[in-house]
Each structure stands twice: as structure tokens, then as C-alpha cells.
Design a protein around this nucleic acid. Structure first.
Lengths: 220, 220
DNA sequence: CAAAAACTAGACCATTTGGTCAAGGGTTGG
DNA sequence: CCAACCCTTGACCAAATGGTCTAGTTTTTG
């Protein structure tokens, strides 16, 4: 973070750091922090182990750097929504965003999940505070929507939890999903899943589903 | 499994095995398989480490025994539902069951989640097959409900995934939830969350919410 | 072009940790 | 009461692994 600002992206160091982070993301997602071997990260990045330790002081240092990268994904459109916005549009887009992250960055999602399940031992107080205040602000907006009868009465906390839960699930439990569907989810399946989920949640909140999120299938 | 059938529950061996399993559940949930120390399990069970290895041949043996216990939780009411049942009742009860497991056995839920996230390396083919055929049967019932216009059209797979996702979330992400709500969820909070979730999903499916799942609050 | 800085890499080490062993203590059934 | 079995326990070990050291190579910079 500190160096990256002024550092070019095409120096040998930057390239290697990037390769290592990418390899680490796969390994940590698959084996957790304790179960991951520095050697395996090195192998995957096609570098000697010593190099990994050279660029990142330690296994923990690498993990923390990765985690910081991952947390930066957790921002989006919804962050700036106000009462005046249409809840149907805002929520649908929020869900679509989250689903898109699950599709394109499943390992990031898994690492975050592992971190939380294990008691969030590496999430900084700063992140937690930031997250808590984000939550508070979003809850207020949703409550205002409810007051203005734009949304049926429900606890905004649970609504948000349920959205996160469902979206994350498509990344974290991808193996199970693949097993049960008989095939992995491709981009189209994700679109279907997103539209299904948007419909479920929006209708569940008493909202109409925006046209853009209605699947037009031959199947009636 | 093999011995338990004829073994009494009050022998010294059975008691210790039970203590060890309980301790292991906490430790594995908190640190994952690789991150868990046999010594810590022993400490928590208040037994010497050698005892743990005496009762269970190895760390992996203990983990597998625990996992088997946990998987037995994954059965419930919905297993026997048919077209003739009321989908609103069946689904609401299914959600309530799952939420109850999240409340009472959060560590079991976490271990299962860790297992899936890490690629399900220890889930037997038997379990997977069983699970897949369970899924197929449930999907059929839901499709029949849809054909009979008891439910709005949606993909049954995604509906089930979304239910699992939300229910599991209250166990797996309990730390985050506590952080964001400012306090841990007690039994009453779980009841609220359950009713919120039932309302969201049932309304999302075009179903009326059974009376038993409507929270009567002073808050309008 | 020379020197400093960045990078590569094999050899090596200290520690941690799952697991073994042998010896002894309790319990139970005949 | 004794013998077989179950249980307890400290001492110990081999393997794995994160990390260091040193030495050399390449790249950058003045």
C-alpha cells in the first residue's frame, strides 16, 4: 500500500508481487492460513520460496497484504444511496454487484469468509469501525424507505445479512453447488441465479422487479 | 459408529469420547483442521494429549468422527414433504429448523462451511451421492408445487441454495453480525431473524406467511 | 561504466507438532 | 482375588515448515 502509490506496475518487483498475491489467494482460499504452505504459494507463482519471503516479510505479512486487497472489494454503488433513490433499483444493483464479485473473485470471498468464521483475528479495528458505520448509514436509508412506504416493514439489518449471505454463498459454496447441479455455474447460470435472487428478495420486500432483472426464457 | 451401538453412554470411555468431540468441535470451528492443535483440544477437554490420541487414532480420525456426527444434523422435516403438503408450511418450518441449528450448533455449521470452502476434501462420496439424490427429490416436489400454481415460478435449486445460505450465515458469520448489531443474537433475536427470513422468502415465492411466523411487535 | 540497489537462490536451522512407546494404575468379570 | 482389559501419562521422536544466511546475479542509477 505504502509503496504501491509511486511504484510502476511493470517493474520486476511489482510483477512478482502480483504473481505471488494471485497465487496466495488461491492457496489461502483452498487451505486456510494455517493449512497453506509458503512453498506451495511459491510453486504456484513459479518462484523459489525464498523469493516469496523476500517480497513479503513473512507468511503472515503476505496474508495481511492480501487481506487488505480483498477488503477493498467491499465497496460499491449502494454506499451512496439516499431516500430519494428507488429501493428496487438500488437493491437489485447491489445484489448484482455482489453476485458479480462472487463470480469473478470467488477466492477473495472465501478468504473473507474463512477470516470471519475463524473469529476475524486479522480484521483491523479500523475496518470493523468503518464497516459498522457503513451499516448504520445503510440501515437508516432503508428505514426511511420503509417510513415512506417504499418498502414493506422489515428489519434492515436482517435484510442486509440475508443479501450478503445469499451472494457470498455462490462463491463460498461453489463446490457444493457444482456437485448438486451436476455442473459448474457459468456466466449465464450466474445471470439466472442473480435474477432469481433479485426476484426473491425484491418481492419479499414488496417491491416490483425492474425489467432488467427479469429472465426471459423459453421456459414459461 | 461401529462400537457406539452397543456401548453404554456412561462408561468412562464414552464420557471421554464425548468430551473430546465437544472440545474438538470448538477448536476445529475456530481454527480449521490445519490450525487446530491436538494439545488445545486436550486442554479444552481437560485430558492429556495422549488420551485424545488414545480414543481417536489420529487428529484426522477425530476430525472425521466429528464430521460424521455433524452431517447427521442435516436431516429434517422437509425430507418427507410431498406435493400435497402446503409449501408455505413446509418451507417455513424448514427455514425455522435450519435457523435453530444455526442457533444451537453454530460450531457444527462452521465446520461444515470450512469443509465446503476448502473443497470438501473429507466429505465421502456416499454423503455427496445421498445429498445429490435428496436435492433431486426436493427439486421435484418444488417443481410440482409450481405446476400446481402453489408457488410462483422460480428455479428450485436457487431457492434451496438461498435458504441454506441465509440460515447458515447466522452461524458462520455470527462474529460479524454481533459486531454490526452491537450485541450478540439471543434466542429472541433469532426468532425475529427467523420470522424476517420466512417472510422474505415466502413472500418472494408468492406465498402467504403462516400466522405462527408473524412477529407481533409493539413496533408497527 | 562502476557502484549501489534490487533480485535470485541453495543450504541450513530452530521450532513446532502429530504421533509413538513403555510402564503403570484402575476396573471389571469370573 | 486374580487376570484380562481399559485407561492414564510422561518421555521421546521424526518430519514438516517458516524463516535466516550467505553468496551470487541482474538491474538501475549517478
Amino acid at each position: 500500500m505504502k509503496q504501491k502509490e509511486y511504484q510502476k506496475d511493470d517493474t520486476i518487483g511489482a510483477i512478482n508481487r502480483h504473481k505471488i498475491l494471485a497465487a496466495a489467494e488461491v492457496e489461502f482460499a483452498l487451505h486456510g492460513f494455517a493449512g497453506t504452505r509458503v512453498q506451495h504459494i511459491a510453486d504456484r507463482a513459479q518462484l523459489p520460496k525464498t523469493n516469496v519471503l523476500y517480497y513479503f516479510k513473512s507468511k503472515e505479512g503476505l496474508y495481511l497484504a492480501l487481506l487488505e486487497d480483498i477488503l477493498s472489494l467491499w465497496n460499491g454503488e449502494f454506499d451512496h444511496a439516499t431516500v430519494d433513490d428507488d429501493p428496487a433499483i438500488v437493491l437489485a444493483n447491489y445484489i448484482a454487484d455482489k453476485m458479480e464479485i462472487s463470480r469473478t473473485r470467488p477466492d477473495a470471498s472465501k478468504i473473507f469468509a474463512l477470516e470471519i468464521i475463524n473469529g476475524a483475528p486479522n480484521l483491523s479495528g479500523f475496518f470493523k469501525d468503518q464497516h459498522a458505520s457503513w451499516m448504520k448509514a445503510r440501515v437508516q436509508v432503508i428505514e426511511q424507505w420503509i417510513e415512506h412506504d417504499k418498502l414493506s416493514a422489515l428489519d434492515p439489518h436482517y435484510l442486509l445479512f440475508n443479501i450478503w449471505a445469499t451472494c457470498q454463498h455462490y462463491a463460498d459454496f461453489a463446490i457444493q453447488i457444482t456437485e448438486l447441479r451436476g455442473k459448474p455455474m457459468d456466466e449465464n447460470d450466474f445471470k439466472d441465479a442473480t435474477n432469481n435472487l433479485v426476484a426473491l428478495i425484491l418481492k419479499g420486500c414488496g417491491l416490483a422487479v425492474p425489467d432488467t432483472f427479469i429472465t426471459t426464457k423459453t421456459k414459461n
